[in-house]
Structures are given as C-alpha cells and as structure tokens.
Design a protein around this nucleic acid. Structure first.
Length: 263
DNA sequence: CTTGAGCGG
C-alpha cells in the first residue's frame, strides 16, 4: 500500500462544470410530506422523541459507501441539504493518513426521513460524479433493520461497459425476471469508475438459473454481458451444465473449493 | 483481461 503523495485529488471535472456548483441534482420526485410539516429545528438538537410518541431508539443514520477521496462532509451535506432533514454527515478517515476510508455516515432527523432518503437517493447519481449513491442502514448504531430472512440468489455479470450503473444493470434483468432484487456494479475506489463487472440478485432461484443461460451474451447498454456464478457462495448442485460437471472439494470440516471440470 | 461487502464515536 503505497501512500499516495497527492492523495487528495480534487474533483476530476472542471471544464464542463455548471455554474450552480453546490446545488445537487434533485432526485426524482421522491420527497413526500415532510416538507409541509413546519418543523424548523434544522439545527440544534434534533427531536429525540423523548418518551412519548416515537421510539427514541429508532435508527436515523445511514451508511454511505463508494465515496471517492474528495467527497468530504461538505460535499455530502450539499447532497442532502435540500431535504432539510440532514442532521450531520461524517466521512470515516484513516487515523494515520487522514485519508477517507471510502464510507461515511449520514444522520437524519427521523427514521422516516432516513428511509425516504434511502429509497429516493439510493442508486441515483451523485452530483459531480459518474457514480450513484450507495446507501444502507447503519447497522451498528442502534436497532437492527435486518430482516433478511428471504434467500437471495446472485449471479456474476462481467464485461460491462463503463457507463452501466446499478440501475441500468438492474433494469436490464428486471425487464425479464420479476424476482430481481437488485444489482450492483463494482466501483473502483480510487477512480470512482466501474470495474466492468457486477452482481445481480434474484429472489427466485429458478429465475437465477434461467438468467445464467438466457442472459449470457445479451446486450447491456452497448456490450454483451458475460454471466457466471458467484465465486464464494453456497455450493450449487446443478447436475450438469454445458457439458461440465461441478466437483466440490471438501477438506476437514467443510467445503474448500469448487472446480469446473470438463467432461 | 474482471468475482463484491466497506459500519464510527
């Protein structure tokens, strides 16, 4: 890990930057009734829902990932300023180098506001960048929002064009398969650009299996996709596939590796 | 050519 001398690179743009610098793109029409309620406590202590009414332990923080090194607190604040619901923004930094770890936390006034942000902004384009917001509930803060009781079946999708986003990838599959739960294009932390591959999650295993063969070679944006199984998931016991057999190699207590052995 | 994922104070 070579400490980059000039690690704090400024935003890579600059020539085609619009005049309105800090105003974020309004994400599509997602903002509901919160603006109408005249709660003017934008600064000072956020309503902590003392003992009456709301649950004081409600999670109001979101985790945000895939941040580039120039995306600081001021940038994050500007992204959500228009909502009037952001209490604080924080970028986690390495204690030694001070460099961003690529993620942070956003605290909102209420759980409901955070949830609206999560649904409205997640996947939308981040201002002054080519990537989209990656948001999730902050899991370690307080309560647990994990209700992940439903199984997920994921495929690997490679050979993606650079401009393919989570949304594009997801819609490519959603147009065909109802059970698509989401898609993620892997982003390079340093450049903020796509690494050219990603993952698509299905709720239905049969659709996942179908997609493996049906969508292989299908165009996503400008390039045909290459589809494969995910690397480190549960062993799938598809008996035969393309004239290959899956050999599961066990050692000691569990599965060690799986190889595709040509017949 | 490529197999993610990262949760502070």
């Amino acid at each position: 890990m070579l400490p980059q001398p000039g690690g704090m690179a400024p935003p890579p743009m600059g020539m085609d930057q619009q005049q309105r610098m800090t105003m974020p793109q309004q994400p599509p029409h997602f903002w509901p009734q919160h603006q109408q309620q005249q709660q003017q406590q934008h600064y000072g202590a956020p309503p902590t829902n003392s003992a009456a009414g709301g649950a004081a332990d409600e999670v109001r923080s979101l985790w945000i990932g895939d941040l580039q090194y120039w995306m600081d607190e001021a940038y994050l604040s500007s992204c959500f300023y228009s909502t009037g619901e952001l209490v604080s923004a924080k970028v986690i930094r390495n204690k030694q180098t001070g460099q961003s770890e690529g993620y942070g936390f956003l605290e909102f006034r209420t759980h409901a506001a955070a949830e609206t942000i999560l649904q409205g902004y997640n996947g939308a384009l981040m201002p002054n960048s080519e990537q989209s917001f990656r948001l999730n509930w902050a899991s370690l803060g307080a309560g647990d929002k994990r209700t992940d009781d439903s199984p997920e079946y994921t495929i690997f999708v490679g050979d993606l064009a650079g401009e393919v986003t989570d949304y594009v990838l997801q819609e490519t599959f959603k147009a065909v398969y109802q059970s698509v739960k989401g898609a993620k294009v892997v982003i390079d932390r340093v450049t903020g650009r796509s690494k050219g591959y990603g993952f698509v999650k299905f709720g239905d295993e049969r659709e996942q299996q179908r997609a493996m063969s049906e969508m292989n070679g299908v165009l996503c944006s400008t390039r045909p996709m290459r589809i494969g199984p995910t690397a480190n998931k549960k062993p799938m016991n598809a008996p035969t596939q393309n004239g290959k057999r899956e050999a599961l190699i066990y050692g000691g207590l569990g599965l060690v590796s799986a190889e595709m052995i040509p017949v």
